[in-house]
Simulated scan of single mutants.
Amino acid sequence: MKTRKEKCGYYDSYRYAKTKDEIKGRQKIIIHKAHLNEYWKKMVEEKDQMPQKEGTKLRKHWFYDGTNYRRLVEPLDIAERYKNGKTNYIKDTSDHYKLLERWSDEDKKISKASEVKRNKATSLTEDSCFWAHVDEALISLKDSLQKKSFNGVHL
Rank of each mutant, 00 (worst) to 15 (best):
Y39W: 13
D77H: 15
C129G: 06
D12E: 10
S13K: 04
D135M: 07
K98T: 13
I78L: 11
V116E: 10
M50C: 11
G9N: 05
L58R: 09
K112L: 09
I23K: 15
P75N: 09
K5S: 03
W40C: 10
Y39I: 01
E6A: 12
E136C: 01
P51L: 09
I78C: 13
K42D: 05
S144V: 02
L124A: 06
I110G: 01
K98N: 12
L138E: 06
Q27V: 10
K109C: 03
K117H: 03
L36N: 12
M43Y: 09
V116N: 06
K60W: 03
D77C: 15
Y10V: 00
K57D: 07
S111V: 01
S123W: 14
K142N: 15
K60T: 02
K109A: 11
S149C: 11
K5L: 07
K142L: 14
K20R: 06
S123H: 14
Q146L: 15
W103E: 14
S123T: 04
S123Y: 11
N88S: 13
L141K: 08
L58Y: 11
G25E: 12
E6F: 02
W131G: 00
E106R: 07
E6G: 04
Y11V: 02
I90L: 13
Q49K: 13
L72N: 12
N84V: 00
W131Y: 15
K148F: 10
D48W: 01
T19I: 01
Y39S: 05
I110Q: 10
E106W: 02
N84D: 05
S123P: 00
M1E: 09
Y82D: 00
H61P: 00
L58V: 06
D127E: 15
R71S: 12
I110T: 06
